[in-house]
């Protein structure tokens, strides 16, 4: 489904930082991969490279056989297949919940208004906030906003969902409702790449955990392997700090 081969990314502003160093991995269809690591380890950059929100300097990224970094690739078409959920939700504040979910369906997928609305209502029901369809994002709680954001991404019928620290900006009591939605998605067989600090989620839902540090993948393994007997010192230190 996703193949990452030797990608590198260096930020030059405000000062030179090697965000990704020779990163390679493969993600199979239906797999749920949790990427964790200390802040600044490059996990968000890796995720953002997958749909070219960041442009990797070198290497190859293939999603469903399509070369993400090839300038000839229709990036908009590709992005429609790759859903993304952000830490700060990034809902469109000038549009209602319903309009947030129908906008891209209509302008990108060219769906009719009724089809888009039907899809939106179905997804709102799925994420448990069908009663908020007419509300504006600013009037929703963080947890509700993030669930709308998930519904907005799902409305495009993506093949892959990328989650960039989806619960980091939430009050603790709202984390559960968002994770529940993500768990449901996982059980339905969605391919997911999740950058998160929620180790409970990783342990319970992930097929594989990738641990990154200083822009490189340090350790990859099943949750059992990762949490019970990690091999690298750096991993052990990280786990001892957060568990």
């Amino acid at each position: 489904m996703i193949e990452v081969r030797n990608i590198n990314k260096t930020f030059h502003v405000p000062h030179e930082v090697k965000a990704l160093v020779d990163v390679s991995t493969k993600i199979a269809p239906g797999e749920v991969v949790v990427v964790c690591g200390p802040s600044g380890s490059g996990k968000s950059t890796l995720l953002r490279c997958l749909n070219r929100l960041e442009h990797a300097d070198s290497g190859h990224i293939l999603i469903d056989g399509i070369d993400v970094l090839d300038p000839k690739t229709n990036i908009n078409k590709l992005r429609a297949e790759v859903g993304m959920v952000f830490q700060s939700f990034n809902l469109f504040p000038h549009k209602t919940v319903l309009d947030n979910i129908t906008l891209a369906q209509r302008v990108v997928r060219k769906r009719s208004k009724s089809d888009a609305l039907e899809k939106a209502n179905m997804l709102l029901k799925k994420v448990g906030i069908q009663d908020k369809s007419g509300a504006f994002p600013d009037n929703l709680s963080g947890g509700q906003q993030q669930r709308v954001a998930i519904a907005r991404a799902l409305a495009m019928d993506p093949k892959v969902m990328l989650f960039d620290e989806p619960t980091s900006a939430l009050d603790p009591e709202m984390i559960g409702e968002v994770l529940d939605v993500m768990k449901t998605l996982a059980t339905e067989g969605m391919t997911m790449v999740v950058v998160t600090h929620e180790m409970g989620f990783a342990r319970e839902v992930a097929d594989r955990v990738i641990f990154m540090d200083a822009g490189a993948i340090v350790e990859v393994g099943t949750p059992e392997h990762f949490f019970v007997n990690p091999t690298h010192e750096r991993t052990k230190l990280f786990l001892s700090q957060i568990l």
Binding site: A80, M84, F86, F92, H94, A104, M156
Partner: peptide
């Protein structure tokens, strides 16, 4: 906020579409 463009583009909208539907309406207000 840059996140608005990123959200719009991540949904597959083109630069022009995200300007027209997401950025300019907010900027105009």
């Amino acid at each position: 906020h840059r996140g608005q463009t990123e959200a719009a583009r991540s949904l597959g909208m083109s630069y022009a579409q995200s300007m027209l539907h997401v950025i300019l309406p907010q900027a105009l207000r």
